[in-house]
C-alpha cells in the first residue's frame, strides 16, 4: 500500500516557516564573529538545549535532527534512498582504502546512510561482498582489485563514483515523483560534467573519461567524453546544445560556481512544492532545502574563521527555498 504523506506534509508546512531565508543569511554574514553567528542560529531554533559552541558540531546536530524528524514523520524511509545512497558509496571508498592500508575508519564514515557503516566495513574487510547490497557488490570487487593491483586511489574512487551515479539514476527512474527524478538526473549529469571538465584539464584519454561517466538521459556521454578528450571549449560547445546551456557561464567560472548553479536550479524547480499539499515532493523539497541551508551556513561560518570577505561569500551563497 502506498504511503499517505498528508500528516508529514502538514508538519513540513509548519517547519518551512523556520527555514532560513536570504535575509537571514545576510544577517548571519554580517555577524561580527563565529560565536555571534552561532547565537543568531540558536535564535532561529538551531542546536538543542546544550550550549553547542563549535560550528561543525552544530551542523552535525542539525543534520541528525533533520533525519530524526524525517524518520518520525515518514515510515517508509526507502523513498529517500536516493539522498542517502551517496553516503554508502562514500563509506565503501573509506572501507576499501582502510582495508588495503590496514587502518581503522575512525571518524571517516558517514552515518546517514542506507547500510550500517560498520556492517559495510566488516563485510569489505572480510571480503564477504555478498553481505553488501547487490548494487554495490560488483563495483566493490572491481575497485578492490584495481586498488590492490595498481595502488591508484583515483581509479578506485572513479569506479565507486560511477556505480554511485548509476544507482542514483536507477532510483530516479524507479520513482514516480518528478522532483526525485529531476534530482537523480541532475546528480548524474552534474557528475558527468564535472568529470568532463576535470578530465579536459588533466588531459585524460577518451576511454578513461567514458569509463568514468554514468549514463543519464539529459546528456550523451559518448559526445561529452569525446568533447572532454579534445579540450574545454569542445565541452562548452557540446553543452550549449543540451539542457545545461544555462550552466555554461558557471562552468566557465569554476566548479563551485557550477555546483551553485545546480543547487539554485533545483531550488527554483522545487519552489512549486511549497504549496503542494500531497505526495512526497514537499518532503523531498524540505530535505533538500535544509541541506542547502546547512551548506550555506557552513560556508558562512568557515568564511568567518578564515576571514573571507563578505563579497566572496555572497557570490557563493545559494538561493534559499523560502
Amino acid at each position: 500500500m502506498q504511503q499517505d504523506y498528508t500528516y508529514a506534509v502538514a508538519r513540513i508546512r509548519f517547519r518551512e516557516t523556520r527555514l532560513l531565508n536570504d535575509g537571514d543569511l545576510l544577517s548571519l554574514l554580517s555577524a561580527k564573529d563565529t560565536p555571534s553567528a552561532i547565537r543568531l542560529l540558536r535564535d532561529k531554533g538551531w542546536g538543542d538545549n546544550n550550549d553547542v559552541k563549535d560550528a561543525e558540531a552544530l551542523l552535525s546536530l542539525e543534520e541528525k535532527k533533520l533525519w530524526d524528524f524525517i524518520g518520525e514523520i515518514v515510515t517508509e524511509q526507502e523513498v529517500f534512498d536516493f539522498l542517502r545512497v551517496p553516503s554508502d558509496f562514500h563509506n565503501l571508498k573509506v572501507a576499501i582504502k582502510c582495508v588495503t592500508r590496514d587502518e581503522k575508519p575512525d571518524g571517516m564514515l558517514l552515518y546517514n546512510a542506507v547500510c550500517d557503516p560498520m556492517e559495510l566495513f566488516d563485510a569489505v574487510s572480510n571480503r564477504e561482498y555478498q553481505r553488501l547490497p547487490e548494487y554495490m557488490q560488483d563495483c566493490t570487487r572491481e575497485a578492490m582489485t584495481a586498488l590492490l593491483q595498481t595502488s591508484d586511489g583515483q581509479l578506485c574512487d572513479m569506479i565507486i563514483d560511477k556505480a554511485c551515479m548509476e544507482h542514483v539514476v536507477t532510483l530516479g527512474k524507479q520513482s514516480d515523483n518528478e522532483i526525485i527524478r529531476l534530482y537523480c538526473e541532475l546528480f548524474a549529469a552534474s557528475g558527468d560534467i564535472k568529470i568532463a571538465v576535470r578530465s579536459a584539464k588533466t588531459k585524460k584519454s577518451h576511454d578513461f573519461i567514458l569509463r568514468a561517466m554514468a549514463e543519464c538521459d539529459s546528456l550523451d556521454i559518448e559526445k561529452l567524453s569525446a568533447a572532454a578528450a579534445l579540450d574545454f571549449d569542445a565541452i562548452i560547445a557540446y553543452l550549449n546544445l543540451t539542457d545545461y546551456k544555462g550552466a555554461v557561464e558557471a562552468i566557465r567560472t569554476s566548479m563551485s560556481a557550477f555546483e551553485k548553479w545546480c543547487d539554485d536550479y533545483l531550488t527554483e524547480v522545487m519552489r512549486s512544492q511549497k504549496w503542494e499539499p500531497f505526495g512526497v515532493g514537499p518532503i523531498v523539497a524540505y530535505i533538500l532545502a535544509r541541506e542547502n541551508e546547512m551548506k550555506a551556513v557552513r560556508l558562512i561560518l568557515s568564511a568567518k574563521v578564515n576571514n573571507l570577505s563578505e563579497e566572496t561569500v555572497k557570490e557563493r551563497l545559494r538561493s534559499m527555498y523560502v
Binding site: T6, Y7, A10, R11, R13, P277
Partner: peptide, 14 residues
C-alpha cells in the same frame, strides 16, 4: 479523516 490527519500534523508542531 483526511483533514484530521493534516490537522494532527500541524498540531504536533503548533
Amino acid at each position: 479523516g483526511k483533514a484530521g490527519v493534516a490537522a494532527s500534523g500541524v498540531l504536533a508542531e503548533e
